[in-house]
């Protein structure tokens, strides 16, 4: 033991946004071939501030303010990546990703396949996603299912600061194009702030996390719906129903094993997702569960999703169409009583 008395460093809790920012700073510092492209990410530091200070630290040649064209951002990212760069491409809102759709699904997603492995693209396309904040139709979307349906893209969505940082670092080192869904309602949410490791770490893509253990019903979810599930579990516990909450974290690749193992224990499952129901990822989860865990099920799997509507603006309208703690509790009781 050292004779010197040193003050223990004051561990600072970090929010989800700071965690992302740390990941970007550390990866930029550690990888001289990494660049960032996006609208307003340099001078302004990003609409939400995820890239604040990044251009000052690494220069305008590595942190580029792009004209308002998601397609050009994605396309240029593909070109730079095929020529040796690692690229972070920011979508100012994930809703705007539709403007770059062709470049993502036809150009970026297929490159490794088309070239028989000659080219791989280390690109992270990231941006703020999700509803519940009054963003209305074009600042509330969860459109991840579009990209899960395009082979060649990894799709992830962290729900905690620890995961946000660890998964961002993993995504930037993955070597494949990764669509990184950040939940903007979690960016500065005080309740989920946490201390982050001082040393470098990653959270591997494709590994689910069990956020709460239970034996009567399994909730499968990701993003901010994980917190709705946790709250529902707390309420259900008062009525003697214990729910296990799984945060899948990564949609593609998917950790089916953790889901199946949980259902083998609980025999019941509710899948919760704020995207619309039809052809949403909740439907894919239910299909996988039917394939792999049918023999364990004592009740039909149930989905709690947004209604098949856009996300409306006025608060009562928004609340009406989105998943909620109440809707999850109701669904859980239904499957438990089945």
């Amino acid at each position: 033991m050292s004779a010197t008395v040193t003050e223990a460093p004051i561990a600072l809790k970090k929010n989800y946004l700071s965690a992302l920012k740390e990941a970007l700073f550390e990866e930029m510092a550690g990888n001289a071939d990494m660049i960032c492209m996006g609208e307003d990410i340099g001078l302004l530091g990003g609409a939400f501030g995820v890239t604040e200070g990044l251009q000052k630290e690494f220069g305008a040649h590595r942190v580029m303010d792009m004209p308002i064209s998601e397609a050009a951002i994605i396309g240029a990212s593909v070109g730079a990546a095929l020529n040796g760069k690692t690229v972070m491409a920011e979508m100012q809102f994930i809703d705007f990703i539709s403007c770059g759709f062709d470049q993502i699904v036809n150009m970026m997603a297929t490159y490794h396949y088309r070239t028989a492995g000659e080219v791989n693209l280390p690109i992270v396309v990231r941006g703020p996603a999700g509803a519940y904040g009054g963003g209305a139709l074009y600042h509330s979307q969860m459109n991840e299912a579009w990209f899960c349906h395009s082979p060649g893209l990894k799709v992830v969505c962290p729900s905690t600061p620890y995961d946000a940082k660890g998964m961002m670092k993993a995504a930037l080192r993955d070597g494949n194009p990764v669509l990184f869904y950040e939940i903007k309602e979690l960016y500065r949410k005080r309740e989920i702030e946490e201390e982050l490791p001082v040393d470098d770490y990653i959270v591997p893509l494709g590994k689910a996390a069990i956020r709460r253990e239970g034996k009567d019903v399994t909730f499968v979810s990701y993003g901010q719906n994980v917190y709705h599930c946790l709250e529902a579990a707390t309420q259900l516990a008062e009525e003697g129903i214990t729910a296990e909450v799984i945060d899948i974290r990564s949609l593609v690749p998917l950790d089916e094993e953790t889901i199946v193992n949980s259902i083998a224990k609980t025999n019941r499952v509710v899948v919760v997702n704020e995207a619309p129901m039809t052809c949403g990822f909740a439907g894919e989860l239910v299909a996988r569960i039917s394939d792999s865990a049918f023999e364990y099920l004592d009740a039909p799997p149930v989905r709690v999703t947004r209604m098949d509507t856009p996300v409306p603006w006025a608060k009562p309208l928004e609340t009406y169409v989105l998943p909620s703690v109440d809707k999850i509790v109701t669904a859980a009781k239904r499957v438990v009583k089945f």
Binding site: A71, A76, S77, G79, A80, G84, N106
Partner: peptide, 14 residues
């Protein structure tokens, strides 16, 4: 025209 932005990214890297 989908390769034009890719081409731009390629020479940007160079």
């Amino acid at each position: 025209a989908g390769t034009i932005p890719v081409a731009a990214g390629v020479v940007l890297a160079d």
